[in-house]
Measured scan of single mutants.
Amino acid sequence: MSYSVTLTGPGPWGFRLQGGKDFNMPLTISRITPGSKAAQSQLSQGDLVVAIDGVNTDTMTHLEAQNKIKSASYNLSLTLQKS
């Protein structure tokens, strides 16, 4: 079951990613910084990142996902799936 979260910026957003197409692993939330915008939302460590700002992550490399997140200036919309 997927869910959506919109973090209001600017960054830093307070989470780290792992995985990506180049690692043959789905993009997942690997760490959440305590007290951060991510920590105050529904994000959980281990959640799968399905889309970033409406763009499906199935074919994204780790770097492409990082760049997509960094390019979000004020709002960052994520679609996630609980692990």
Rank of each mutant, 00 (worst) to 15 (best):
G54R: 05
W13N: 03
P34K: 12
V55W: 08
I29R: 00
T57K: 00
D58Y: 08
L7R: 00
S83E: 10
G46K: 04
Y74N: 14
S83L: 12
L17P: 01
S83V: 12
T6K: 09
G11M: 07
G46M: 03
K37Q: 10
G14A: 01
G14R: 00
Q66W: 11
A72M: 10
M25F: 07
M1V: 09
L27N: 02
L43Y: 01
L48P: 05
R31P: 04
Q81C: 08
R16L: 10
A51E: 15
H62K: 15
S73W: 10
S2C: 14
I29D: 00
D47S: 05
T28W: 07
Q45F: 08
F23T: 14
T79K: 15
Q42D: 13
K21N: 10
E64S: 06
L78W: 00
K82H: 08
I32S: 02
I32W: 00
A65L: 05
L7M: 10
S41G: 07
K82I: 15
V55A: 13
K37N: 07
T57D: 00
L48Q: 13
P10S: 09
T59D: 14
D53V: 01
Q42H: 09
D22K: 04
Q45P: 12
V55G: 05
S2Y: 14
W13A: 04
P26G: 05
N67K: 14
S77I: 12
G35S: 08
M1C: 12
F15H: 02
T28K: 15
T59M: 11
T79V: 11
M25R: 15
A39M: 06
N67A: 15
Q40C: 11
S77C: 13
L78N: 01
K70M: 11
G35V: 04
E64V: 06
D58V: 09
L63P: 07
Q45C: 10
L7W: 04
T6Y: 08
T28A: 15
P34Y: 09
D47H: 04
A38C: 05
Y3H: 07
S30N: 07
G19P: 03
S2W: 08
K37V: 11
K68C: 09
T6G: 05
D53M: 13
T33G: 05
S4L: 07
Q66R: 15
S71I: 10
A38L: 03
Q66A: 15
P26A: 06
D58Q: 12
N56C: 14
V5E: 03
A51L: 07
G11T: 06
T61W: 03
